[in-house]
Design a protein around this nucleic acid. Structure first.
Lengths: 212, 212
DNA sequence: CGCACACCTGTCCTTGTGGATAGGTGTTGT
DNA sequence: ACAACACCTATCCACAAGGACAGGTGTGCG
């Protein structure tokens, strides 16, 4: 892992200005060498066999084979190559998909100007680097979904929690000091507001959305 | 975010040899300055007010105030200070706890020798850095819990999934080409195996454990 | 005041569920 | 061959839930 020669890097991106910017940045670094460039997944997979890079800077969205599939194939054939994702924007789906397929880091292009070289070195050393926005996303999986209340009123939320505890209508009624009729009324509203057909579905939806 | 002066760093650790090692490493770096050292949480909280560091290298396990509480307090009073956790070992609980309290990165001490300077620079630039072991842990949250099947047989798992879709016993029976009686039999077994009282509770438990 | 809305209650009737009980068939491993 | 286990089926009955009405009360707002 210690550097004998320079860190060999391949850049994969289908935008010329990214190539120019990265070249300029990395050419100033003695310990990092940009050994190849590709503009889609097919090219980089082929280049890996040929150039044996240490680190790949990979875009996600590209014509032909995209970054996800390219990452998967490279990870399979060359497990030692570090793959650092350069994404144009915060794309929830691609973050998880790229990392699940073996990417070692995920930084937003907006941040690369600052110091891409350090990021490459850190990744090369076996650490994972994420732009803070990306790290936040990883640390709070589905924080948005947890806020889903489906427009349920306070009382309705109390009722669905008791439903989830397995109480039947009578038990809920006693617990809340209301009549069985009222409980049924609330449940009917809950089911309707949640857009489901039965109380069972409402419970599952609520559970999946952290409402319970 | 661009460096006018050097990156000002405080080290917090209760082991002298870590202090020595970090000092040695960082003294070689022109752009990083070790401006203070502390050996517990109380000291670093006080030092932060006084020294206004850019980055804190924080141990987790310390006498007196531990790293978690120190991180929380510093994050609250000085939101701009980056906190990089240096952990002696992979401690599942502390990873999540430290990050939840605002740590910006989490690296294992075994890896710092390689290049702590790059890690500090990368963190300073607003990215999150994690040792790969730690990143793996973040990417697979509660893999164990998802394996919870409560000893349900294949058929029982099919049944509970249909229950969760809101199907009643008759519909489940039709869907699985079995009788209503059999469905009731399976549900009774499911409820019993899951250690709950009602089908509603079984559904919630299943939903919470990713069984559905 | 009048409206909206959360909240509460009742009745009637059909259908579904819970629980107990008592079996049968087919596969797998000792 | 026998046991263990998954899987399937049936019957009986009390009770719960669902759906459709048709209301009443209290609070906040324009």
């Amino acid at each position: 892992m210690s550097q004998d020669g320079p860190i060999r890097v391949i850049l994969v991106d289908d935008h010329k200005h990214i190539h120019d910017a990265v070249s300029t940045l990395l050419n100033q670094q003695a310990d990092i060498q940009l050994v190849g460039q590709a503009s889609n997944g097919f090219e980089v997979v082929r280049l890996c066999d040929e150039l044996k890079p240490d680190v790949i800077l990979m875009d996600v969205v590209m014509p032909g084979m995209n970054g996800v599939e390219a990452t998967r194939q490279i990870r399979e054939k060359h497990p030692h190559i570090k793959i650092l994702v350069l994404s144009s924007f915060q794309d929830d789906a691609s973050v998880h998909e790229m990392l699940a397929n073996g990417a070692n880091g995920y930084v937003l292009k907006g941040a690369i100007a600052l110091d891409l070289a350090d990021t490459i070195r850190t990744t090369y050393q076996g650490k994972s680097v994420f732009s803070n926005e990306v790290a936040q996303m990883l640390l709070r999986p589905n924080r948005d979904e947890q806020q889903q209340t489906f427009g349920l009123t306070d009382r309705e939320q109390e009722v669905i929690k008791l439903m989830a505890d397995g109480l039947n209508n009578n038990e809920i009624a006693h617990r809340l000091f209301i009549s069985r009729s009222t409980v049924k009324f609330h449940i009917a509203n809950i089911v309707q507001k949640m857009g489901v057909e039965t109380r069972a579905e409402a419970i599952v939806l609520a559970a999946k959305n952290g409402l319970i």
